[in-house]
Design a binder for these strands. Sequence first.
DNA 1: TTATAATTTGTAATCATTTCAACTCTATAA
DNA 2: TTATAGAGTTGAAATGATTACAAATTATAA
Lengths: 140, 140
Amino acid sequence: MINKKKTLLNEIKEILKSKGIKPSYQRIMVYNYIKNHINHPSVDTIFKAISGSIPTLSKTTIYNILNLFAKKGIVDTLTIDKNEVRYDFIKKAHAHFMCKICGEIYDIHLKSDVCLKDFVEGHKVEDTHVDFKGVCKECL
Amino acid sequence: MINKKKTLLNEIKEILKSKGIKPSYQRIMVYNYIKNHINHPSVDTIFKAISGSIPTLSKTTIYNILNLFAKKGIVDTLTIDKNEVRYDFIKKAHAHFMCKICGEIYDIHLKSDVCLKDFVEGHKVEDTHVDFKGVCKECL
DNA sequence: TTATAATTTGTAATCATTTCAACTCTATAA
DNA sequence: TTATAGAGTTGAAATGATTACAAATTATAA
């Protein structure tokens, strides 16, 4: 069990190094959290979740790390919620659905030509976001 | 000229009434502005633009009016820019492109099945946003 | 006209995010 | 081993968009 965890952390260490990121303990913990929590956490959510394991943790550190990860292409920055930025571990292109009632954000696996465009009307596309809002199936 | 302007304002007055909105002078001016400025203005932009004609205007009033217009389906609330909300006069469904360099937001006229969905994976869709980010043709 | 409700206004509060300077940690060189 | 430099972290303070709220103004109805 202990060995398993050690292996996991070493794996993350290697991934971060391969992306040109020095693998500090805080960065490894944030990476591990967002990799395993696909519910589009906010900075505050991540902070509360891992500050138990790192008593001295500062929220500024979470901001720093996520801004770094976004720049390095590890996380996607979702602006679907106007109150706070949400982060999404980048796997492959997918859309999002946000419930107006409960605020939950769901992944939507949709195949569409929209996500494949390199240029639209002369502008060079780097990121594509497809956001749906409405009432989720739980709240219906 | 004066008559023409008067006619325009009366037209807007009728539109607002038909949507169940009492047509105050401030509301008419905001409506007139967003109808004619398709560059996705922020609250601050709208405020600066029309405060010349209404010396006593408060920025809170712009917030109130835009929140009301959004609720009544007159404007679309764009969260593509994480720094501030942008507003878009609702005509017909279209996508947006935001330039990472200059911050400009362009309308993208794209025909896609994505915009026509009433339900996705069991969730009831009320709004659909397709947002592209990258480098615009001016900055390329 | 007077009373009542709706709207606007300005100030203050809220809250996510950024700035910044001090502190800590780690790695490397002497 | 110790000193030093650089990177990373921390917490307090600043920023800035948005909202809350209560007072002032305007419109509406009796």
